[in-house]
């Protein structure tokens, strides 16, 4: 067990090192990139992705996939935006958005557990359904004219740090502690690592898979709230394609799509890397159209390195085990 945890630790440190390397290299080319102001800005623009990645990690840990987060984000942002625009209470707007996220998560969970639909298909279907519901709800129009004080919320500073960033960082640390230290938090990893084993241990597997989808849905609606307050309007295709970026961020941060491996901190670091590439290109005066190529090749390279490392680790472990068995037999004989 100690060994596995050290490997995981290594994976997160690698991601962190890569992030630092990215900042240093770009900083060499343009020193402005290392200014506190820019780091704060990078963090701020990645908040949305961090929140989504945290929710996604829960689902990925159990060995499932949630493609519907983009749709959930769009729908909850649209509903929250409309309530605020029409002069509604801000708490009502927040609660409505969170309820929508939880409800979509519940439907996902129901499909995966009860209807036995592969999570990929189920959430993909829900992604297109939520998109249509958003269009129906907003009549295909953008939600604009959201009161300015909502936008101010994303600009509040506390101790020289953005309040939202502060909340998100604290939240990530809290979730990390929950997932790695709490008994129930570890259920998610256990389910993804070995479902049959988890069932034998008496873990309510289905319930925790449902929880993971609900958590992912709620995170997506939280991201929708951040979207409303940071951007200030909701277009009909808000969050389109974001689900794939989030999965890419999780994978970059060392979360396995098979389940059972990964941490929330890693996923958050992955999210920061992906958004930092955007701003790094601007600071390096590289045209923005290089963005997808760089993110894509980065993802592939890191994933291939990971696969090779895991393969060699397995091979080594097998060898050690074989040697141990041979030695045992030799001792007996």
């Amino acid at each position: 067990m100690a060994r596995i945890s050290t490997i995981i630790k290594q994976r997160e440190t690698r991601t962190l090192l890569f992030l630092i390397l990215l900042f240093v290299v770009v900083g060499f080319i343009n020193t402005d990139y290392l200014s506190l102001q820019n780091i704060d800005k990078s963090l701020k623009s990645s908040l949305l992705y961090i929140v989504l990645a945290v929710g996604m990690t829960f689902v990925l840990l159990t060995g499932n996939l949630d493609i519907s987060v983009g749709g959930t984000l769009g729908l909850s942002a649209a509903v929250c935006g409309t309530i605020l625009r029409d002069g509604g209470n801000i708490f009502l707007a927040v609660i409505a958005a969170l309820l929508i996220g939880a409800f979509i998560g519940l439907i996902n969970g129901f499909g995966v557990i009860k209807l036995k639909i592969s999570s990929f298909i189920m959430t993909l279907a829900l992604l297109s359904i939520t998109r249509v519901v958003q269009v129906l709800y907003t009549d295909g129009k953008w939600v604009e004219n959201i009161p300015a004080n909502v936008k101010e919320l994303s600009k509040i500073d506390i101790f020289g740090m953005n309040l939202l960033s502060f909340f998100v960082i604290v939240g990530v640390i809290f979730v990390q502690v929950y997932l790695s230290k709490s008994r129930k938090g570890r259920y998610y990893t256990a389910i993804g690592d070995n479902v049959d084993g988890a069932i034998s241990l008496g873990i309510p597997v289905n319930r925790y898979i449902a929880y993971s989808f609900v958590i992912s849905g709620i995170s997506a609606s939280l991201a929708g709230l951040i979207f409303v307050s940071q951007i200030g309007f909701v277009s009909t295709n808000a969050g389109a394609g974001i689900e794939l970026t989030v999965i890419a961020a999780c994978v970059l941060g060392g979360v396995s799509l098979i389940g059972g491996i990964g941490t929330v901190i890693g996923a958050a670091l992955g999210a920061i890397i992906l958004t930092s590439i955007n701003s790094a290109l601007v600071f390096m005066k590289v045209p923005a159209f290089w963005n997808d190529t760089i993110s894509g090749s980065l993802l592939i390279i890191i994933v291939v390195i990971d696969a090779l490392l895991v393969f060699h680790a397995n091979k080594k472990a097998k060898k050690v085990r074989l040697n141990a068995r041979v030695l045992q037999k030799g001792a007996q004989g």
């Binding site: 996939l65 990929f120 794939l244 999965i247 890419a248 994978v251 396995s256 799509l257 098979i258 290089w290 963005n291 997808d292 190529t293 760089i294 993110s295 894509g296 090749s297 993802l299 592939i300 994933v303 291939v304 696969a307 090779l308 895991v310 393969f311």
Partner: peptide, 20 residues
């Protein structure tokens, strides 16, 4: 041959080919 998960690899490919 590289033993990468199909979903992850083709997701990376999706970004890369669109990017190119």
């Amino acid at each position: 041959y590289g033993r990468v998960q199909a979903m992850v690899m083709t997701l990376g490919g999706m970004l890369l080919y669109r990017g190119i």
